[in-house]
Design a protein around this nucleic acid. Structure first.
Length: 467
DNA sequence: TCTGGGGTCCTAGGACCC
DNA sequence: TCTGGGGTCCTAGGACCC
């Protein structure tokens, strides 16, 4: 049996942990730069607010006192969902974190028998396990979760939707009999099935498939012939109760991307370099956090595709490194080199990003035979470690390279800034203040200050080598 | 004026090798 | 006239997920 534990309206629920007064009120959370809606409370959904609605449209449609709007605060969401995962870890025999707000749980028959009163496989005890898990997480983190249980991951996902929809399930729905499976499939629209996206749903509907049951009833050969696609065939198998989606044990990412849209548009290379340096530094941190190194550093830039009146440009290029690295300095340097190649003067850029690929384990690292300075290598490694520690304790971007001089504050959403200025409670500020401040911040600021007037990258490495 | 960010997997076809 | 067969690696594109 599989379980899926899914945080209800995750980002909204995180905000509500610090704002209990917003319970039962319409709440939405916006994307970066307050671009569009990424999370909605049930009340907001009922008002007809769709995911992805641009904020300016929302503001026109609903006055501010009708709906609570938050800029996103990913640090907070990461922290709270991390606590949810810690509890799952304690309660479940095996688990896999599937996304920021979802976690698969695997049960073997031993676990089920061990937890049953009768000393034999008894699924009703599993249902109780789910209900208790919900209570426990709600009580200690304040996060409401829904739990779906089923013989395959796809059926567990399906069950979790029913757990959310009908309070009678007490936040945990289980598909454990053929009768329940058929009933659930018949009630389930095909476009909501896990693994069936917009494209496939449209094709299936054109072929007369309205719900999951219609799809499952088709013959496997028909599915193969119609789609010639192993992924959708697995989904079909799973709906019919056959475990087919491989378990994802590997938690390490195969590529890492950091990208942002800019609040305005950027046309000069230097400003672009500042942003790209930041994204590159973030990628390096992510690499180090999972103990890996990368050998390919890619950079993309694009103009604003919504501005049909302006000339459009998009490009992506990459650089291959001889020695894979997770060093901030190396990756920032490579990213800036690639940026020079993709950048063309005369366009107004709206977005840029850094993607690192060719990811492998940190050691043993293949050394460049001709260009290897062991002493410097060790120094860089120690430096990155210190930076990660400082940034972890003080919030990210306390210490930055000279070339990445913008800070999180500059990029903070308009809504968050307005809220702070008006003196309204801002949980993002509170959250950060709750962290211990260390002297390192002073050190970091001093370094940042020192760089302002000089060539940042060169100066930074000078300092490392002196220390 | 305003339109997110970060991933995965699969497949077909070409380059290249012996 | 007629032009092997088998393998690997890489890339681009298309689909999906949250």
């Amino acid at each position: 049996m599989y379980g899926i534990v899914d945080c209800d309206n995750c980002y909204v629920s995180c905000e509500r942990v610090f704002r209990p007064d917003l319970k039962d009120k319409p709440v939405v959370v916006l994307s970066n730069n307050d671009g569009c809606v990424v999370a909605r409370s049930n009340e907001a959904k009922k008002m007809g607010i769709k995911a992805g609605t641009p904020y300016f449209q929302l503001a026109q449609q609903f006055p501010n006192d009708k709906i609570a709007v938050f800029s996103s605060n990913y640090e907070l969401y990461g922290e709270l969902t991390g606590r949810v995962m810690e509890i799952i870890k304690l309660e479940a025999p095996a688990y896999f974190r599937y996304s920021i707000d979802e976690c698969f749980v695997y049960f073997n028959s031993q676990f089920i028998i061990h937890n049953s009163r009768l000393g034999e496989a008894d699924y009703s005890e599993l249902k109780l396990w789910g209900e208790n898990l919900h209570k426990r997480i709600k009580k200690s983190v304040g996060m409401p979760v829904s739990i779906g249980l089923g013989p395959t991951k796809t059926l567990a996902k399906l069950a979790s939707h029913f757990a959310k929809k009908y309070p009678g399930y007490r936040h945990c729905c289980m598909i454990d009999t053929e009768e329940k499976r058929v009933k659930a499939l018949k009630l389930y629209p095909i476009e909501d099935v896990w693994g069936i996206g917009r494209r496939y749903a449209a094709k299936l509907q054109a072929l007369g498939v309205q719900n999951a049951y219609d799809f499952a009833q088709h013959h496997g050969d028909w599915v193969k012939a119609t789609f010639n696609n192993i992924v959708i065939y697995r989904t079909w198998q799973e709906l019919n109760g056959t475990d087919a989606v491989p378990n994802e044990e590997m938690a390490k990412k195969k590529s890492i991307c950091t990208s942002r849209s800019f609040p305005g548009m950027i046309s000069d290379l230097d400003t672009l370099k500042t942003h790209v340096s930041n994204y590159a530094a973030r990628c390096a941190e992510k690499l180090r956090a999972q103990n890996t190194v990368a050998s390919i550093i890619g950079v993309f830039v694009n103009t604003n595709f919504f501005r049909e009146d302006l000339p459009q440009y998009w490009n992506f290029q990459e650089k291959r490194l001889i020695v894979p690295t997770s060093s901030t300095i190396d990756i920032v340097k490579a990213a800036n080199e690639v940026l020079e190649k993709v950048f063309i003067q005369g366009y107004q850029y709206k977005k840029a990003g850094v993607i690192v690929m060719g990811i492998g384990p940190k050691s043993p690292v293949q050394m460049d035979l001709f260009d290897y300075n062991a002493e410097q290598f060790e120094k860089m490694k120690r430096l990155d470690k210190v930076i990660d520690h400082i940034n972890k304790v003080n919030g990210s971007e306390t210490v930055v390279l000279g070339s990445q001089q913008y800070t999180q504050k500059d990029g903070k959403g308009k809504v968050a800034i307005e809220r702070e200025q008006s003196g309204a409670c801002s949980n993002s500020a509170e959250h950060k203040q709750a962290r211990p401040k260390v002297k390192a911040e002073v050190f970091a600021n001093a370094i940042k200050h020192d760089f302002r007037s000089k060539n940042p990258t060169t100066r930074w490495s000078d300092i490392i080598l002196l220390k």
